[in-house]
């Protein structure tokens, strides 16, 4: 008995080693489920706060470039606004000329089902095989799970996976777990976008029908089927068609429009009619 106790005592480091290995492997394997759990909300908050402090410094350093990007975006929006105004004017004008009894229907306040929440990145990774982003907005700001995330340039960046009161975790497009329904903007053929884990600048568009028509340089946009993103949000540009073993080339290499290595400001997209859409889709499936 004495010998046994001495043996265990002398070799306690083996026991400790295997216990710790078991614990960390358990953490690693259940990672995505734990990420969603309540226990981690606290650690999310602590880590989020620390990253907020350090990203404050780096966002100051990048102030100039971010300002330029924002101004550019404002210019683009301004142009679009002008175009819309002109079109509205034309409609009004035409209505006025042809039919004196025509009354313009006022656009109802809740017309657009999309709402945008601006957010800043506090943590980002691009070098791992599964990449995630942390944002400085959480449930307190109205962020919910499964909302879409756009870069400041208006291109797709990812999908909200879990939310704590002040922070949210986003599955980046650079994650094999993320699948995005996309279409070729000129021909409307749709497929799903997947990252192969190699180059953070490129993704693959698969599940395209074999008769799909495309050419390099075509823009890939969101299909709008998923209730997460509005239709027509730019995602990337076709650079190459990858041959499959069967000979059908229905895999496209996409150059992503979002530069994940420099992304700093984002917009979270809320679909106010999401619940309605998912509910009816579920009912249809039953």
């Amino acid at each position: 008995m004495k010998n046994l106790i001495r043996f265990i005592f002398n070799n306690f480091h083996w026991l400790l080693f295997f216990a710790l290995i078991y614990f960390s492997a358990w953490l690693l394997i259940n990672n995505s489920e734990i990420q969603r759990s309540r226990y981690l909300v606290i650690s999310h908050e602590i880590a989020g706060r620390m990253h907020t402090a350090s990203s404050g410094i780096s966002s100051y350093i990048h102030l100039k470039r971010d300002n330029e990007a924002l101004t550019e975006r404002i210019a683009g929006l301004e142009q679009e606004l002008m175009l819309c105004r002109k079109q509205l004017e034309n409609i009004n004008h035409a209505a006025h000329l042809r039919d004196s009894t025509f009354v313009m229907q006022p656009i109802p306040a809740g017309f657009s089902s999309w709402r945008f929440i601006s957010a800043r990145l506090v943590h980002n990774s691009i070098s791992r095989t599964e990449n995630y982003i942390t944002l400085n907005r959480g449930t307190n700001d109205g962020v919910r799970e499964n909302m879409g995330v756009l870069s400041a340039k208006g291109t797709v960046a990812g999908l909200v996976m879990s939310v704590s009161p002040n922070f949210s975790r986003v599955i980046s497009l650079l994650n094999p777990k993320s699948r995005l329904s996309c279409k070729i903007s000129s021909t409307n053929f749709f497929g799903s976008l997947l990252w192969d884990g190699k180059d953070p600048r490129y993704c693959n568009l698969g599940e395209l029908p074999s008769h799909a028509v495309f050419k390099t340089g075509d823009t890939i946009v969101t299909s709008g089927y998923s209730a997460t993103f509005p239709e027509g949000i730019p995602v990337g540009i076709v650079t190459d068609a990858l041959e499959q073993k069967s000979g059908r080339s229905n895999y496209l290499r996409i150059n992503l429009l979002t530069d994940f290595s420099t992304i700093r400001e984002v917009l979270i997209v809320e679909n106010r009619k999401r619940d309605e859409q998912t509910k009816i889709e579920k009912e249809g499936a039953e």
């Binding site: 080693f17 290995i21 358990w26 734990i34 990420q35 981690l40 880590a47």
Partner: peptide, 16 residues
């Protein structure tokens, strides 16, 4: 791991 959002990864490596 807690600060880098990579639960288990660094821990497993450092234990070994």
């Amino acid at each position: 791991d807690i600060f880098g959002y990579t639960l288990g990864l660094n821990m497993l490596a450092t234990i070994i």
